[in-house]
Design a protein around this nucleic acid. Structure first.
Lengths: 345, 345
DNA sequence: TGTTTTTATGTAATCGTTTTCATTATTAAT
DNA sequence: ATTAATAATGAAAACGATTACATAAAAACA
């Protein structure tokens, strides 16, 4: 005689229909505020919905309407300050538009990224927003996603070639240029540069900016002071060791992220070098750590919130005007950056 | 005569059925590796799936089976280091179990939190993992979620009273105790404490630990050196100003998070106080910033990855053994913490 | 007032799976 | 060899919404 625990059945549109004496269709119309519903019945239905505590089943809705009102986002890591900020902004704005966001981390693994694309496709998200891994060179999984009709917007780390996806990126050429020319302006002549892997557009562009600034100042770029590994603490130390074992040492360092800049600061301290007197350092991204460290680090601000806003803006436009040709190559949107001068320079 | 762009129709189980000459039921069985499928047909089906590039429609699947293989997570902010780490661990492990994770941020807003619960309920997640806002005292939205049959696990910021949800939290009493007794051991006698709002279990517990340590050392707790506001930089400054305007000044400070500890460090510098000589500071959470600041800050490590592992472990157990009475009050799991001594003490 | 148009509602098909039930093929048991 | 049990498949009914189509009511027009 044991009581059988049934999973509590949540009520459906049909319960609401019966309770109001209307048809399910009308309930659905109210839910989607279809124009052809009398104000009075609309009110009646809404009241009953409230009373019954009815909650629309988005799964059923999604199956029929082919709209899940969910956007998928793929990002290397949410723990990166820049991405955390972008995501938060995106999520807040999307929320106002009635969209949910499913956040996924690729952990900078190409395979994981591929899996995540499939997973998002499988849950039929209405669109995907992605910042690629450092090593994504094969974009065919993304292409396939688009081919299946899912709008796609890349940001920050974007494909290098042409793509029919929407693209929003920071002005990394300008960023690299600002960082480098700043060092030159304040007197540096022997500038090292720790860049990231050149598979990634970010580092290609920042490097371009670096070269531009060096060229304008008529300074020679020393290949032995150029590094292209993933920008971790550990790799930074390896690079720095190599630099400082050489016959000459630099008086300025352009680091392509703040983690590297911080590692460089620590390394300089250990070497007995004074920053900024003996070595001037500039980082990238304006990570909160760059501000609190001693000396605080000059860096490039990327305005993640502005980027988040732009991403949603572009995406919503695309989602609302289905008419625009999805295969059209649109020009990337480039967001401004700014140098934040601090005590490391 | 304009070519009409149809949304590319992704193929279904039926296409696969037709292509193999089998019934949809069998395809479904293969997909869910049901035992009663001949090895040969299984192989045939899988090959055809590969060939057609078929992808299961999880929406349809979810509707019928009432299982979405998606877990919802609600967290105050992903930008908090501790949470970012926990989330990443959870996501990675869940992924291995074949689950997706939908991450939502409440931004520490009770209303937003309520909305998010509804939203997750509406997309029929299989379970919810939540770290509450600082001000969540009404847990009825969560109760309702559970009543609808959704397993719920709280972590870190958990309900203070009894709950039928699963609960996993750090040993905050011990954490508060460790921080305080450490200061006492190294000679502090006049200890201030910047706590968070006591609505939140975390700060209640850490405060308890603080009191315990003070009592054991027979030290008097000065109410005028106790603060209970949200632990922001700004609030920290206000509290510190108040403390240092008083007739006496402390020689030790227990801060309930690292943001506050960092603000205190800065404040002390501005006041011309040497840390640790004049003032010893201990923080909480082992935020990366606490390590790189000068002097580095002693703090409490919470092992976010271990907590993430535990959360998934408990959740999976619950998800697999549906039989256990969901209304049973289970005892909270308490995860160990450790003091990391650095240069601020 | 009668006809047309517009508004408001209902009926039933549909979305793509899963799953119960029925049926057939295969193996084991007598 | 016959029966009983088990394995493998298919047919068709769900799941809970949306929506094309049909119809009824109301408003606009003649």
């Amino acid at each position: 005689m044991a009581e059988i625990k049934k999973t509590p059945k949540s009520n459906t549109i049909i319960q609401v229909a019966e309770a109001t004496g209307l048809s399910p269709a009308t309930i659905s119309r109210v839910l989607n505020n279809h124009p052809y519903v009398k104000e009075a019945t609309k009110k009646k239905v809404l009241e009953m919905i409230e009373k019954l505590g009815y909650q629309r089943n988005n799964i059923a809705s999604g199956l029929r309407s082919n709209k899940t009102r969910t956007i998928g986002l793929i990002v290397p890591r949410i723990s990166m300050f820049f991405h955390a900020e972008v995501i938060t902004t995106i999520q807040n704005i999307l929320y106002k538009h009635g969209y949910n966001l499913t956040i996924c981390q690729s952990g900078d693994s190409v395979d994981m990224e591929k899996d995540l694309i499939r997973a998002l496709q499988s849950v039929r998200v209405d669109a995907v927003i992605a910042a690629c891994t450092l090593h994504t060179t094969d974009f065919s999984p993304f292409d396939q996603l688009m081919a299946s009709g899912t709008p796609l917007v890349f940001y920050d780390r974007v494909p290098v070639g042409k793509t029919s996806a929407m693209v929003i990126k920071g002005d990394d050429i300008q960023g690299g240029y600002l960082a480098t020319s700043h060092l030159i302006e304040i007197g540096c002549r022997r500038i090292a540069h720790i860049s990231g892997p050149l598979d990634c557009n970010l580092y290609q562009d920042r490097l371009k900016g670096f070269y531009n600034a060096m060229k304008i100042a008529d300074l020679q770029v020393r290949k032995e002071w150029l590094f292209y590994h993933e920008l971790t603490k550990e790799n930074a130390r390896i690079a720095l060791k190599q630099i400082f074992e050489g016959p000459e040492i630099p008086d300025g360092l352009v680091a392509d992220n703040d983690t590297t800049a911080i590692a460089a600061l620590k390394f300089a301290k250990e070497m007995g070098l004074k920053v900024p007197q003996d070595l001037k350092i500039v980082g990238y991204s304006n990570d909160p750590r760059s501000e609190i460290i001693t000396p605080s680090i000059t860096t490039i601000e990327q305005y993640p919130d502005k980027m988040g806003e732009k991403i949603v803006e572009v995406l919503m436009a695309r989602l609302q005007h289905k008419n625009m040709n999805p295969m059209e190559i649109s020009t990337p949107t480039i967001m401004p950056v700014q140098l934040i001068r601090r005590l490391s320079t």
